[in-house]
Simulated scan of single mutants.
Amino acid sequence: MNTDNYILVRHYCETTQISDTFISSLHEYGLIECRTIETEIYIEADDIPEIERINRLHHQLGINLEGIDALNHMLKRMQQMESEIKNLKDKLRIYE
């Protein structure tokens, strides 16, 4: 399997001083995706900004992973609602 879009968790944790148990917890809560390739655990490169954002929320603001999961759910719902409002506004412009 091609690992170009994946980062080895062990290397990422050594570089960023984020614990591998924190990465495992994020995966268990479904906040990020991890893949096991030939006995090594990898994360997608696209998940790095999300991991860093969650790490800041968790360590700097003291929000637990359940709270972060709830925040993510609310943010996704707000984005859906904003998209729906934009679509409705576009439809209303037809009648102006």
Rank of each mutant, 00 (worst) to 15 (best):
G30C: 03
L57P: 04
I23W: 02
L88Q: 10
E44P: 03
N64K: 00
M1E: 09
E84V: 09
R53I: 05
E44R: 06
M74R: 12
A70M: 13
L8R: 15
I37P: 03
L26F: 01
C34G: 01
G67C: 05
N72W: 01
I23T: 02
V9L: 05
K89P: 01
E44T: 07
H59F: 12
E44C: 07
T15K: 14
I94C: 06
L65K: 00
D4F: 12
T39P: 03
Y12P: 03
G67Y: 00
T39G: 08
T16R: 10
T36V: 14
K91R: 15
L8Q: 11
T39M: 12
Q79D: 14
I41G: 01
K86Y: 09
T16C: 10
E96A: 12
A70K: 09
I54D: 03
Y42A: 02
R93W: 05
L92I: 12
D46A: 13
K91M: 11
A45C: 09
E82G: 05
I48M: 06
H73V: 05
Q80H: 14
I32T: 05
K89V: 06
E33F: 08
E44L: 12
I37K: 14
M74D: 08
E50V: 07
M74P: 02
I18M: 07
G67I: 04
I48C: 07
K89Y: 08
T15Y: 13
N55M: 03
T3R: 15
N87W: 07
T21F: 04
A45H: 09
S24G: 06
K76F: 05
L61P: 04
I32L: 04
M74A: 11
L75I: 10
E14T: 13
T15Q: 13
H11A: 09
S83R: 14
D90R: 14
Y42P: 00
T16I: 04
D4W: 06
G30N: 03
N64D: 10
K91I: 11
M1R: 12
L31G: 02
E66P: 00
I94N: 06
Y6L: 15
T39W: 10
S25A: 11
E33T: 13
H59S: 13
Q60I: 01
M78W: 09
G67W: 03
T21H: 06
I68L: 04
Y29F: 13
I43P: 00
L61M: 12
I41F: 01
I51Q: 02
N2L: 12
N2W: 06
L92F: 09
M78H: 11
E28R: 01
R35N: 05
K91T: 08
Q17S: 15
